[in-house]
Design a protein around this nucleic acid. Sequence first.
DNA 1: GGGCACTGTCACCGTTCGGCGACATGACGC
DNA 2: GCGTCATGTCGCCGAACGGTGACAGTGCCC
Lengths: 220, 220
Amino acid sequence: MLNDPMVLTPVADAIRVEPEKRIRDRSATEKAILKAAKSLLAEEGFQNFGVNAVARRAGCDKQLIYRYYGGLNGLVEAIGADLGTWVKDRIPEDTGGMFLLTYGDLMERLSLLFLEALRDDPLVRRIVAWEVSENTEQVRRLSEARSKALANWLDRMRGSLTPPKGVDVVAVNAILIAAIQHLVLSASAGGQCAGLALKTPKDWEKAATALKRIVRGVYG
Amino acid sequence: MLNDPMVLTPVADAIRVEPEKRIRDRSATEKAILKAAKSLLAEEGFQNFGVNAVARRAGCDKQLIYRYYGGLNGLVEAIGADLGTWVKDRIPEDTGGMFLLTYGDLMERLSLLFLEALRDDPLVRRIVAWEVSENTEQVRRLSEARSKALANWLDRMRGSLTPPKGVDVVAVNAILIAAIQHLVLSASAGGQCAGLALKTPKDWEKAATALKRIVRGVYG
DNA sequence: GGGCACTGTCACCGTTCGGCGACATGACGC
DNA sequence: GCGTCATGTCGCCGAACGGTGACAGTGCCC
């Protein structure tokens, strides 16, 4: 019965919305797989991220993931490679026409830029959530790619501005970045963080104001 | 073949290392299940948290989880109920003999207390990681229990100290809490956060110093 | 003693997962 | 025409999962 084409064919037709057969184009298929993986990770999170799910979304057979990427690990690595261009695409290089006179000016602006960029990018949000939830080889590579890109960006934006003496800028900035990341993650997951609602634009204005106040408090 | 007792019996005998039968004590079994669930969640994380795993660790049949807790959801709810006593057990109520003269004194102390408490509690760490990774009914209830306990604690510790005027303390404190939580989570997962190593006690001293500086910057 | 509720155990179901071998079909060189 | 290789597809495997019905042993109450 299961092998009766008279029974299965209509079902297959109903499922296969695209009756056209997949064209034989490896690079296109590779791109489709990578795109499917990124969108799947962005929309569903790392929980249901697997070979089967990616293949389903890409509309191809999972075997191709093994052939072209060597499995999920290779695919994740490809995502990480893409990630290196994240900051470049998301955050403007210039200072928006304003002169940054002090390190405090710079960090205030960068904090808000980073906050907005993270709010707008579900993929990186999921990756950050992944980073604090697991410690597998996959997430380690993603994390490394992301932190490298972030460090490069910070370095480039700093320009010739010198940080204030007597303050551990690496530690302070790490805490600021941690705060922003956790704020956005909490908001994305539950719409609030430690009693602070984070849903409406008004909520986010309050958060941004508080963040500015904190940055100004420490960097003047 | 599968139902042939001659084949299956020796295998079962080999697996059962403890020939002693489980004593018939419902409340003890319930406690064992709850303890197993908490330790499993703390050690393995929410990724592999399921009925089978809990039952395995508790050394009982998973059916009992359904009978006594109504499934995983009820078990998670029981964990959440336990969670209400977290702060009380973990963080000293008094101020350690020091007089807190200002709101800044208070928040500096609370920040460091919260940081240490979170560093010492793997279960709550996993729950926080869970909170920013999923938005299911399970994690929502856990999150609610935790945030309520946290709010109560903050309120109790505040005492009669009045926060400074003109600053959104809810937002600022939410950001501080977010920073601490993310810092500890990142450290626990990867041993660093945004380029700041978080492994040795010396690393943590630097982080604590930076945190104090930030709190002092915003609260004086 | 005879029911009866409670506790614990087991086997089984349907589903999904990661992974792989085998096969069909197109494209291209000779 | 023919072989050869790359590309895409199919079906299977073993394992683990959540969930459930049926059964065995125990102790208590009538």
